[in-house]
């Protein structure tokens, strides 16, 4: 398999995942809003999670709902439209390795986001729009998982997806903690709903419920999202899955070591201790740095030849 193609498939995996994550995030937060008093919800959070605060501030003066949604729909560098375009471009240049249907679905997704989205900013149409984006992403992943042989191309796609997924989960945890921790008692009721939102935005609510069976608490949620060994979007699970993909690829030792290191860190984390010592933010920063070490190793070994 060509190095250049491996790189494009890896990024295809990442951008597809990012598109799905962003859409879900927007969808969940739009719903959450209906359950909360107006002041309790900051739309900035969504921009913070994507990490494009300065791009947003350059374009908009206030983080109103409309501005944030518009930004995440059509910003040229980080919106749903942009990540879809990147994903499609990577699919276009790796078409020879992908199932036919993937290219067709990719075009559907692209056409959906290229259509006039000015109306979709409105809440009444937003939900349906985001749901169809998420559906298309899942269909794409279904075609990939269901019809690609378990060989290098598939593993690079999966690696990309898991790097992105782990990264997104850490971002969601990070922003949630900045917003939710250190609030006073009277806001506890709201906190409960917000933590629920955090879980939903990672499609984790049901699985958390089955696993934890306890009243929703920040500590338990963070533990679950960092270290659960079975939930496919927990940081620990993503890293374990990456490690197993990496093992199928040639010359993998340095990348494997890097992935296993982050996995151990995530699995051994204790949210309680981190929250008490107010070190959760630093800890998440550390995990993100470790993730970028894994990413760099992947680039060095397989892409840069």
């Amino acid at each position: 398999m060509l190095s250049s193609v491996a790189e494009r498939l890896y990024w295809l995996g990442r951008y597809l995942e990012r598109t799905e994550n962003t859409a879900r995030l927007m969808s969940v937060y739009s719903n959450l809003l209906l359950d909360l008093p107006k002041h309790a919800f900051r739309w900035e959070s969504l921009v913070e999670i994507t990490g494009f605060v300065s791009a947003f501030e350059q374009r908009f003066s206030a983080a109103t709902e409309r501005n944030v949604v518009k930004f995440l729909f059509d910003d040229p560098s980080c919106s749903l439209r942009a990540t879809t375009n990147y994903a499609r471009e990577n699919a276009r240049t790796t078409r020879d390795l992908l199932p036919n249907e993937v290219w067709e679905k990719m075009n559907e997704l692209h056409l959906l986001l290229e259509s006039d989205i000015s109306q979709r900013v409105n809440r009444s149409q937003r939900h349906e729009f985001l749901a169809s984006i998420i559906d298309l992403c899942l269909e794409l992943n279904g075609y990939l998982a269901g019809s690609m042989s378990r060989k290098s191309p598939y593993y690079f796609l999966k690696l990309g997806r898991n790097v992105e997924r782990a990264d997104m989960t850490t971002r969601v945890i990070d922003v949630a903690c900045l917003n939710l921790i250190g609030r006073n008692k009277e806001q506890d009721a709201i906190a409960n709903i917000l933590w629920m939102g955090v879980l939903q935005s990672l499609n984790a609510y049901q699985m958390y419920r089955q696993q934890v069976q306890d009243r929703i608490s920040g500590v338990a949620v963070v533990d679950f999202l960092l270290g659960d060994t079975d939930f496919p979007r927990s940081v620990g699970y993503c890293l374990a899955d990456m490690a197993s993909s990496i093992k199928h690829l040639p010359h993998h030792s340095p990348a494997l070591r890097a992935a296993q290191r982050v996995k151990r860190r995530a699995l051994n984390a204790s949210a309680d201790a981190l929250l008490v010592s107010e070190q959760l933010h630093e800890f998440i920063d550390g995990i993100q740095e470790d993730l970028s070490v894994v990413h760099n190793k992947i680039c060095q070994i397989w892409f840069s030849s």
Partner: peptide, 13 residues
Amino acid sequence: AFLAQRMGIELVQ
């Protein structure tokens, strides 16, 4: 891209 895919061969630059 189309032909490479249909033949199952590598598309290279």
